[in-house]
Amino acid sequence: MTDNQRHDRSRVARLVEILVKALAVGAGFGAATSLVNGISLGYADLESRTYTTSGWSVAEIVSLLLDSGWAWAGLAVAVGWLVTRGVESRRAALAQGAAAGALALLAATAAYSVVDTLRSGGDFPWYASEPLVWWIASVIFGAPLGAVGACVKRPGTIGLLARLTVPVGAALQMVVLPPGRNEVVETMGKTIVWVAAAVSIGFVAVHFLLVERRRHSLGMPSRSSGRA
């Protein structure tokens, strides 16, 4: 086998690995979100005035968290990071992360639609149950978010901003578009997300400062530049 053949086989294997990981994680997330939504509806007594105005359940809170925009964005970022952890070339990492992010959101949307169709006894084709906008959004937002995930491992300011993307975005969503069908659910959802976001931001910031301080104390040059 020639070197070119080995290289081609390696590239194909790498592409298959990215495809499998992105589709598996995305499909798992989408299916889990739909299932939790169904469970939360089973606990809901929407005919009760008291439950409607102040009732809640653990399943509903979990459903609220999983089916939020920041969680789906976090999926794309996480998959972008997952598939590029061992990639040295930054250009290759960005391209692979972007592709994986888009694929993950497409798979999540598809799995969500399939499980929703099965749960509701709806008619197939399952893809007709999702508006076209969600399929388009999966690509438009999934690609850049996946690229952000590929930057998580990078040192310096770029890596810091990439690691802060999800917690900051989650906190902002609680201000712009708070979740929940009543005040109790909304308050619980915002509190959980804000606390988790604050802890995450604090951890990321402290870790970044410690790494930078150690680097400066050792007289190490900035690692902002690297292999293309």
Rank of each mutant, 00 (worst) to 15 (best):
K153P: 00
K153T: 01
K153W: 02
R154W: 11
R154M: 14
R154I: 07
P155S: 13
P155L: 07
G156M: 03
G156E: 01
T157A: 12
I158F: 08
I158H: 06
G159H: 01
G159P: 02
L160M: 07
L161K: 04
L161C: 09
L161Y: 06
A162P: 01
A162V: 01
A162W: 02
A162M: 03
R163T: 10
L164T: 06
V166D: 01
V166H: 00
P167H: 02
V168C: 02
V168Y: 01
V168N: 02
V168F: 02
A170F: 00
A170T: 03
A170G: 02
A171Q: 02
A171R: 00
A171N: 05
Q173W: 11
Q173D: 13
Q173E: 14
M174F: 07
M174C: 13
V175F: 10
V175L: 15
V176F: 10
L177H: 10
L177I: 14
P178H: 05
P178T: 06
P178F: 03
P178Q: 06
P179R: 04
P179Y: 05
P179G: 05
G180I: 02
N182R: 09
N182W: 08
N182Q: 10
N182E: 07
N182L: 09
V184L: 14
V184A: 12
V184G: 08
V184E: 08
V185K: 04
E186F: 10
E186G: 15
E186M: 12
T187V: 08
T187F: 13
T187A: 15
M188N: 06
M188F: 14
G189L: 05
G189K: 03
K190A: 11
K190M: 12
K190P: 07
T191M: 12
T191Q: 12
T191K: 13
T191G: 11
T191H: 09
I192T: 04
I192K: 01
V193S: 02
W194I: 15
W194L: 15
V195Q: 10
V195I: 12
V195Y: 08
V195N: 08
A196Y: 06
A196P: 06
A197S: 15
A197I: 07
A197R: 05
A198N: 09
A198H: 08
A198D: 08
V199K: 08
V199C: 09
V199N: 09
S200R: 07
S200Y: 06
I201Q: 02
I201H: 07
I201G: 05
I201V: 15
G202A: 05
F203W: 11
V204K: 03
V204I: 11
V204Y: 05
V204H: 04
V204S: 03
